[in-house]
Structure formats: structure tokens, C-alpha cells
Design a protein around this nucleic acid. Structure first.
Length: 572
RNA sequence: GGGCCCGUAGCUCAAUUGGUCAGAGCAGAGCGCUCAUAACGCUUUGGUUGGGGGUUCGAGUCCCUCCGGGCCUACCA
């Protein structure tokens, strides 16, 4: 039994996430976690809400609430939606937790001691009306290059020129529109990750099995321009982790907080500590996952994230850990994803374009979404959600291939033999051939899951389901029943076991449907089919069952069109 | 501007380090079955693998170039 630590990129707090966010990290991480648990491994699956930063403060202000209250509410909302999608986190923490405050300050203290933090006095734009320093992109003005009037302080969206806020003509706050701006001096801490460039690069180079997407982004940042740049890790905000060196105050940094991208990855560790706290466990319970000197040496650590998060996970966070000089666990494998687009464009939180997690659960049970999203997860390139494809995939795969198989077997049995697995008859070479095919496929499925080749795993799983229909067609128990009922009984008995087999292996993808199948079979034996032959004899003759409700209903053309219209934009 | 990824049958995608790899699912066509959510099974029509050039005994698979699409470019996270 292995020990596997899994973290999903932590979703930002300022609103409900859309399906693109879900499929880019949390959902595939859940698939992997569920699979590894099913194989009997010890899994620690961690996620959290990322609660600090300017957008959180602005969202809270817009909602007319104190930021702490806003974050607490949104955390509860996101937790509820995570549960709704069946995301099986061992703990869903909060980056604003006391644990994260302590750990973030601890890391900063160690980095300072080791010379990896530098104090830098810089000039930033301050807005009197907003009472805050403005990040570059929150300053708008006229582009000096092309004259576009809504250029942002970091870049002009019209001509794509990189800008400095002070370049803008007639600069104003993007928050309030105020032009009462001034440049003030302010002191900040920089993480001197450039000092760790060689170590980081050697580390990245050693990861030859990582997705190209992951390593290419990391290398780009290592070599772009003058190489890896140092990074500001503090901000002039109220909401966040106060800047301290471990337990000590940090002279000259009063009133400042750490930058979210410094404290957010540390929350992976902190959330594991939160998990231990929530379960009344002591320090060793979580440290054995994270400290290589306290048991984490044999832990395999896998991270899931969208490509936008890769630089922070391949460089900044590892730099934080390396620079601490302490034996914290570094990630072993980073599975990164491209984006999911929506019907010809991008998902847009601001425009309400696309399907959001709450909407999705409002329309259909989680398994429909899980299946489509995972089967089409943007592994190698950006993928696209269309209602036609969603309808076609779900109806065919889930309703016709899997759901209907359960219906035809259980209903046939009920009408011919009654509501118990029939007895009599024996299996022969025909069944042995089926088992051989299933064995080959389930081993391939395992290999794909182990390698996190999600699309391939989904395709193999579907092929396994299809084997059931092929077998039934060939065995034709409805025909055999007339001349040789025992023969039909043996076929149906195997078919029942086949359904259980499918429930077990499909569970990582469609956990609710698997549970309903098992409930109908009145079975609680979720043993993984290491031995397919044995797995197909779990349900004995005489075992009572119920005919399940329709496992997956079909999506109608009318629904498809109504939903397309509803989610075209203008949510709110 | 720089960097990266992609462009394979109508659609969505597969093809270990170059050597039966030109495939699967869907859609289409034909046949079969009738247990089932008008579901299932079998057979079958589709591609000179974006264009051109090159390396090689042999290239979707390597190199060059052109065309087309996407992403990233560091204080929003």
C-alpha cells in the first residue's frame, strides 16, 4: 500500500466557479484520489479556498460585507458545491486559517534567515479615493502607444503593448474611476528565487515524465529575459497573512500582508494541519505527509492544476520550500491542464457566459457532468463544451451503453426468473473468453489511471461497458431461455456480476451511479477486480436484487436548446 | 516582439523511443435481435495524416519553410 498526497489548485474565493475551473484541477484530482483509494492506497486529498488578495476585498465591498464575513460565506458555498459534485476532499480548508498564518510566517522567517528574502523600496500608485494601493491592472488610462482609452496599467488590451502604470495618459482607478492618484514609496519583500535558479532548473530537468505543458512553462520562466526573476511576496492590504518573521514582528513591514501567491500554496500544507485539527489528531498525523524527516519520504505527492498556475507550482512554491532549508515534501508529479472553452468562446465569469457549478447541479446530477468533463478533459489541447456534444455523449455512453445494460439485465431476470440472481447452468469457454477480454481491458484501464491519462482511461472504461452488451447479445438469454433455461440462468448470473464489476470500476468517474447500482444489487463489496474471474462470482445464485430506477435519463433536444439559450450570457 | 502547443476520416480524438499505425467513438448506410431507457449487436462507406521541400532502407512520428488555430509572457489570481 502506497501513500499518496494529492492537492488540487485552490479555487479563488470571489464567486462560484464555472465548469472550466472545475475540470482544470479539482475534478481530475478527485478522479485520481478516488481511484487510488479504490486500489487500497492511503490517500490524503487536499483542497481549500484561496481567500486573500485585492479581488476578494473588492468582491466583499461589492457585496457590502466585511471581507472576513464574505469569505466565510463564499467558502461555505464553494464547499457545498464541491460536495454536490462529489469531490472527495479529505479536507477543504481556507487559506485564511490560523494554521496558514503560522506556516506562512514560519516560511518567511526561514527564508529571511537563509538570505532568500530581500527588502525593496519601490514606488506604487496609491488611490486616495479608494484608500488603497492599486495593482497595475486596476489602473486604467489612455494607451501612450495606440491611444486606446481603456488600457490597463500592466498592458494595453488593444495593442498588446506592455505598460507601466506611470506610462498611462490620464490614469484613473479602475475601481472607483477616481483620478486622485499619486505615486508613493512603499517597502516590500521579494523572494530571491533567482538565487535558486540552478537548483530549480536541475530539479525540473530531472522530471522527464512530466507533461510537456508543465515543463515547458517552467523552462520559459527560467529562461525568459534575464532568467528567473525575483518576486514580490507582500502587499499593502488589510486582508491577508500579516508580515512577520516566524513569531517575531518584521520591522518596517507593519500593516502589510503576504501576497496571496506566497501563502496560497503553503495552504496545501496548512490545510493538512487543519485536517488533523478537525479530527482531533496531533502534529505527527499531518507532518508525516509533509516532512520527509517525519515519515513523508515514502509519500508520492501529485498536484493538479490549470496551466495558468504552473509557474507558481514549478518555481515559486518549490523555491519557498528549498529556501526554507527544511525537509518539506516537494511535489513528485504535476498534472496540468489546458482550458475548457464554451461553445465557441471562453467561459466568462464577468459576462456570465457558460455553465457554472451551481447551474450545472441545478440541471442534472453530478455524474452527467463528471463523465462528460473527464472524458473530454483538456489534457493535450484546449477543449470545447457544446450542448450537442454533451447531449450526444451523455445519452450514448451513460444512458444507452451503461444504464440500459443494467435495465435489460435486471428486467429480464425479474420477468423470467424473479428478483433474485438465478441458479443453475454453468459457464464455459464463451464466458472464459469474455473474462479474458475484460481482464485485458481492466489492466489497460488501471495503467491509464495510474499514468493519469484520463481521456484514455475514460475510453477504456466505456469499452468495458460495451463488452457487456456484446456479451449479452451473443449469449442471447432471451432465446436460450426457451430451450435451455439453465443456460440462460448462467448468462444472467454472470451479467449481474458484470454490473457489479462495472459499478466498482466506474466509481471514480460516476460515484453516485455506482452507488445506486450497488444498492440495487444489495451489495456492499467494493473489492477491486484484481482477479476478474473471481470478481464475476461475488453475487451468488439466490442473491436478491431490485430493479433500479433509470440510471441515466436522456437529455432531450428541447432541453438542449433551452439550456443553450439560457447560458449564452448575461447571467445574473 | 519572444516562447510554447496544435492542425489525422463529416464531428471529437488515438497512434510506445520513426518500422503493418493509418485506428476508435459519434454521425451516415445495410443487416440482425427483441431482454432493454426506439435501447443492443454485426457489417460497412469515409483520410495521398494543413501545403511544399528535405533526412532515412522506411515519417502523422525528425529537420526547414509556408498557411491556419490556440496559449503564455511574471505583482488578477
Amino acid at each position: 500500500m502506497a501513500r499518496i498526497l494529492i492537492t488540487s489548485a485552490i479555487p479563488y474565493i470571489n464567486g462560484i466557479k464555472h465548469l472550466g475551473n472545475l475540470v482544470g484541477s479539482q475534478l481530475p484530482a478527485d478522479l485520481f484520489a478516488r481511484y487510488m483509494r479504490a486500489r487500497g492506497h492511503e490517500v490524503m486529498f487536499i483542497c481549500a479556498t484561496d481567500e486573500h488578495g485585492t479581488p476578494a476585498e473588492l468582491a466583499a465591498a461589492k457585496a457590502g460585507k466585511p471581507v472576513a464575513e464574505y469569505c466565510a460565506e463564499m467558502h461555505a458555498v464553494q464547499k457545498g458545491l464541491s460536495d454536490g459534485f462529489g469531490l472527495s476532499f479529505d479536507h477543504f480548508g481556507r487559506s485564511s486559517s490560523e494554521r496558514n498564518h503560522e506556516l506562512t510566517q514560519h516560511f518567511a522567517g526561514k527564508l529571511w534567515e537563509n538570505g532568500y528574502i530581500e527588502e525593496v523600496t519601490e514606488r506604487q500608485v496609491y488611490s486616495q479615493a479608494d484608500g488603497r494601493f492599486l495593482p497595475d491592472r486596476y489602473i486604467e488610462g489612455t494607451c501612450p502607444n495606440c491611444g486606446y482609452e481603456k488600457a490597463r496599467g500592466d498592458q494595453c488590451e488593444n495593442c498588446t503593448k506592455q505598460l507601466d502604470p506611470t506610462d498611462l495618459i490620464n490614469p484613473r482607478s479602475a475601481i472607483s474611476g477616481s483620478t486622485d492618484l499619486e505615486v508613493r514609496e512603499t517597502k516590500h519583500l521579494y523572494l530571491r528565487q533567482s538565487l535558486l535558479k540552478d537548483r530549480l532548473e536541475a530539479w525540473i530537468d530531472s522530471k522527464t515524465d512530466w507533461p510537456v505543458l508543465t515543463t515547458s512553462i517552467a523552462r520559459k520562466w527560467l529562461h525568459d529575459g534575464d532568467g528567473l526573476r525575483d518576486r514580490g511576496i507582500t502587499r499593502d492590504l488589510d486582508w491577508g497573512v500579516p508580515v512577520r518573521r516566524g513569531g517575531e514582528p518584521w520591522p518596517g513591514m507593519e500593516g502589510k500582508v503576504f501576497y496571496v501567491w506566497f501563502d496560497a500554496p503553503i495552504e496545501y500544507i496548512a490545510a493538512t494541519a487543519e485536517w488533523a485539527d478537525a479530527h482531533g489528531l496531533g502534529e505527527p498525523a499531518w507532518r508525516r505527509w509533509w516532512r520527509t524527516d517525519e515519515g513523508a519520504d515514502d509519500v508520492r505527492y501529485v498536484q493538479f492544476m490549470g496551466k495558468d498556475n504552473v509557474p507558481f507550482h514549478t518555481l515559486s512554491f518549490p523555491a519557498t520550500i528549498m529556501g526554507s532549508g527544511e525537509p518539506w515534501k516537494l511535489v513528485d508529479y504535476i498534472k496540468s491542464f489546458n482550458y475548457l472553452n464554451y461553445d465557441g468562446g471562453q467561459f466568462s465569469t464577468s459576462q456570465g457566459r457558460g455553465v457554472f457549478m451551481d447551474d450545472a447541479l441545478d440541471l442534472l446530477p453530478a455524474d452527467y457532468w463528471r463523465w462528460w468533463l473527464l472524458r473530454n478533459v483538456p489534457e493535450n489541447a484546449d477543449a470545447e463544451f457544446t450542448w450537442e456534444h454533451f447531449q450526444a455523449t451523455v445519452n450514448k455512453d451513460l444512458a444507452d451503453v451503461l444504464g440500459n445494460l443494467a435495465s435489460r439485465v435486471t428486467k429480464f431476470c425479474r420477468s423470467r426468473f424473479g428478483e433474485a440472481v438465478p441458479e443453475g447452468g454453468t459457464t464455459g469457454a464463451f464466458e472464459a473468453a469474455l473474462i479474458a477480454r475484460l481482464d485485458k481491458r481492466v489492466r489497460a484501464y488501471e495503467d491509464h489511471m495510474e499514468a493519469m491519462e484520463i481521456r484514455k482511461a475514460a475510453a477504456e472504461l466505456r469499452a468495458l461497458w460495451a463488452e457487456g452488451n456484446e456479451f449479452l447479445q451473443e449469449a442471447a438469454p432471451w432465446a436460450a431461455f426457451k430451450e435451455d433455461p439453465a443456460r440462460a440462468a448462467a448468462t444472467i448470473r454472470l451479467a449481474f456480476n458484470l454490473i457489479r464489476f462495472y459499478a466498482v470500476i466506474s466509481r471514480p468517474f460516476i460515484p453516485d451511479a455506482s452507488a445506486r447500482l450497488m444498492a440495487a444489487l444489495r451489495c456492499e463489496d467494493w473489492t477491486w477486480p484484481d482477479d476478474v474471474n473471481r470478481a464475476l462470482t461475488v453475487l451468488p445464485a439466490g442473491h436478491a436484487f431490485e430493479v433500479p430506477e433509470v440510471l441515466f435519463r436522456k437529455i432531450t433536444d428541447d432541453e438542449r436548446e433551452a439550456w443553450r439559450a439560457r447560458f449564452a450570457g448575461g447571467r445574473g
